[in-house]
Design a protein around this nucleic acid. Sequence first.
DNA 1: CGAACTGTTGGATGTTCGTCATACCGTCAG
DNA 2: CTGACGGTATGACGAACATCCAACAGTTCG
Lengths: 122, 122
Amino acid sequence: MASDDDPVPDMRGVALVDVLRAVADPIRLRIVQTLADGRQHGKCGTHWNFGVHKSTMTHHFRILRQAGLTRTTVAGRTHAIELRRDELDARFPGLIAALIAEPGGRSHRSAVGDEAYGRHPR
Amino acid sequence: MASDDDPVPDMRGVALVDVLRAVADPIRLRIVQTLADGRQHGKCGTHWNFGVHKSTMTHHFRILRQAGLTRTTVAGRTHAIELRRDELDARFPGLIAALIAEPGGRSHRSAVGDEAYGRHPR
DNA sequence: CGAACTGTTGGATGTTCGTCATACCGTCAG
DNA sequence: CTGACGGTATGACGAACATCCAACAGTTCG
């Protein structure tokens, strides 16, 4: 059943709709798209300068991990995150490939450095 | 920009994350999977006996249409719904194909006739 | 040791979402 | 015309969600 604090849930227990819900967020989608290069990425500022708070990023990383999308390895005081590409491709063929092929069409909601992410600007 | 009551939004203005948000719901995902046979389907009881209210289905159909996934044609007093397969495949290659290949793995949340859909049983 | 760094945890808050119930409107059959 | 049918509109309600802030914990380095 993959309890709440499992390091990574068993991919056989992951439903498609759970993966979709995890990826149906602008920030998390971009994380997955970035992670799709196969390499590991840190969790800190350099890569991910969305305009959100540190703990918000922790929240998104947890959502992705609990949905079975990512794996986290701890190295000293930095954590590295990685896409579970092989397992995902085995269970959901073509899904990741379809996610990383974001079309550049004239669409609102521009890229990262922009504002417009804050749902709760306060 | 595809105003709120457009019959169908322009596919060029549809972002991937919008499609994902539309599909990240158990009922709507099953609708899309069913619609993926290419045929038209009515909106009424026979096909879609999820355990939800009539107006809830209207809500889900509107989400799908506004996200650019479906097209509705009115025929007398019945409405037919249809997946915009060609346009979707052109803009998001492989996405629909990945969505309809739901793996049957040992997963919770069985098919339709079951309960477990009601998030708000009251 | 102590300070800086990296990340998590636990509220708190406002928004969005899925659902239902009721009322409403257009279409077709009698 | 009147009623049944198919579907929509509106409003309400609770759960889930994204976000922030402050406090905390493990690591590395001076």
